[in-house]
Nucleic acid binder design. Structure first.
Lengths: 339, 339
DNA sequence: TATAATAATAAAAACGTTTTTATTTTTGCC
DNA sequence: GGCAAAAATAAAAACGTTTTTATTATTATA
């Protein structure tokens, strides 16, 4: 094992430039009170030795890192990828280092421990909630912004959409196309973001004068597997009772639904109608494309990052809760039936 | 602005437990030579004060972080997501903190600077090359493993597949199905991973006795846009010259191809045949599904992580270059034509 | 030319740990 | 009960910076 060559320190630079350590520091940080001639000598030494400041030492004494932590529940969900990309772009523009962390596979306890360990590594945190539900994470004392939260009234900073209204619009779209028996796959009533979407779906039915019986709700976590299972369950029902239109509560569940259909040789918009959230690849390019409520995913990340940067700078943030616009994209997965 | 409450330090704990700082440290790190009674007093103080060691200070004095950096070119490419997931799983199992960094949008220079700034934050690095091409990144002196490299003989540690052979197999599949004019979209000859794949494609043609003229090669970077443009260009050719089968050099380009086809109301396997790399969602669930050379993406990440951990532990690593198995998945995107 | 003011540099303290060395306390034995 | 050995604890040095304070060198003024 080769000898771990020690890094060049500010001390080495000082010695080489024949100057005090503090002088080197001032040159490096562009402070005044250094004679041009001295300054040049220091820079030369820095170059010659290839000196790089030890970020740990700097952070320790200054108390800040110029870095931001972005926490996601998972790296394979493209919604998260888009949010991170949007956030990252802006944060890099503003000179921040972006450290991305995933909470995947961690118990709430393990996740908290992870955050504690990392708390000194960043000045602030941008998080996409998931499982464990970051929203209830209170140990983080630095500036914190939640992207894709769900309208909680705790006064935290967040970027979100109107999830209740979104689900309402999607359900309404099915109703407008003559569907009278609606399936709703995923989420748990009253729980986090999915709860809001369930509310919206139910409201649409209520306002259309339909009874609770016209809804087949299949609860489940927000993973693909739920969509697959849900769609399968629907097709196990007698056709006379089976919903003709389905609302998938999120992108992964929508993908699960499409998978289940594909395996049976079926298509959304033919054997059954399907609507969902987020304009992901599969929604856009499956055949037919899926009617979705599109969220500005990248913009959401960017907006969250902007908010966080303002907080880090100590600037006033007028709206603590930014609600982004959505768009209903009507496509072939909804068949018009009846009347 | 509320007063930034100072963190609890080891000093506070020591004072509270009426004990020396060093004793607290020994208790925390489970070293011996502490009387049970004293130990309990210290733990109590730790609990009462909610003490969390300052990771910066610890890293500075111990010289290690128990963290690993994972660098990807982009968060929106699902291949990267899968690699990160695989790596993350294993690294978390082994007690490492995983910090993910993206090189997206960074010049080679900016990226090097980023790495230097972060070099103290992790004990080792796992990287997926991209743009800038991490392979040529020499400033990183700590243990380093490349995932999805391309058979360079520089003795670095890497996990990869046989890209030349993979492209060979895909091309052969087209040839076996009677295709005699082949399109190849993406990559640049001799350059990085794409170069290897181009080589493999050409070899298949050569071995089948076909001349260079039977290949329509459309070079381009590894983004979706190249696939879209490439497919468009092919359809601008007179039909008599147009390839009947296309090899997309990577997943994004394959997606671009599918998009271009979808926009014309065409399908792979009908108007033109298509094969590509990686079994991504769109390849699997577009209609028809796309014949691809599937790589064990998650396993690649995991394997890379294993290698890195061995390096970090100072254990011997027998193979510096792990070549993973691939699988050709035959699907509906290849039409059999001719004789 | 002496003297005050100012500019430039150096020295030292601080950040919160671990680790090494020094000191104190406890134990065992005669 | 005294003494050596061992065990437990305390003190101090070190990690690599920034920042505050102290010192020295330069300039301006009389």
């Amino acid at each position: 094992m080769e000898k771990q060559q020690k890094d060049v320190t500010i001390k080495d630079v000082a010695r080489r430039a024949d100057v005090a350590i503090s002088t080197v520091s001032r040159v490096l940080n562009g402070l005044d009170k250094v004679r041009p001639q001295t300054r040049e000598r220091v820079w030369e030494a820095v170059r010659e030795l290839g000196y790089v400041p030890n970020s740990l030492a700097v952070s320790m004494v200054t108390g800040q890192t110029k870095a931001v932590m972005v926490v996601v529940p998972d790296f394979t969900n493209d919604f998260n990828g888009a949010v991170v990309q949007g956030a990252e772009e802006y944060l890099k523009e503003q000179g921040y280092t972006v450290l991305v962390l995933s909470a995947k596979g961690l118990s709430e306890e393990a996740f908290e421990s992870l955050c504690r360990r990392c708390s000194k590594l960043a000045d602030g945190m941008l998080a996409v909630p998931g499982s464990p539900d970051l929203i209830d994470y209170g140990k983080w004392t630095k500036p914190f912004v939640l992207v894709d939260g769900y309208g909680r009234e705790d006064g935290g900073f967040s970027v979100e959409i109107d999830n209740e209204e979104g689900a309402y619009l999607l359900t309404e779209e099915l109703l407008k196309n003559g569907h009278r028996r609606i399936g709703l796959i995923g989420g748990f009533p009253g729980v986090s973001l999915g709860g809001r979407r369930i509310d919206g779906c139910k409201r649409a039915l209520r306002e259309a004068g339909l009874s609770e019986n016209s809804l087949v709700f299949i609860p489940g976590s927000h993973f693909e597997e739920t969509g697959y299972r849900g769609m399968t369950e629907l097709f196990n029902m007698p056709e006379s009772l089976r919903p003709t239109g389905v609302v998938a509560i999120n992108n992964l569940i929508c993908i699960g639904c499409i998978k289940a259909l594909a395996e049976r040789g079926m298509k959304a918009g033919r054997e059954i109608s399907l609507v969902g959230f987020d304009d992901h690849l599969l929604a856009r390019y499956s055949d037919p494309a899926v009617t979705v409520l599109s969220r500005p995913t990248i913009a959401m990340g960017r907006e969250g990052a902007k908010m966080l940067v303002r907080l880090l700078r100590g600037e006033a943030v007028e709206e603590r809760r930014v609600v982004m616009e959505t768009k209903l994209l009507r496509r072939g997965s909804v068949k018009t039936i009846g009347g």
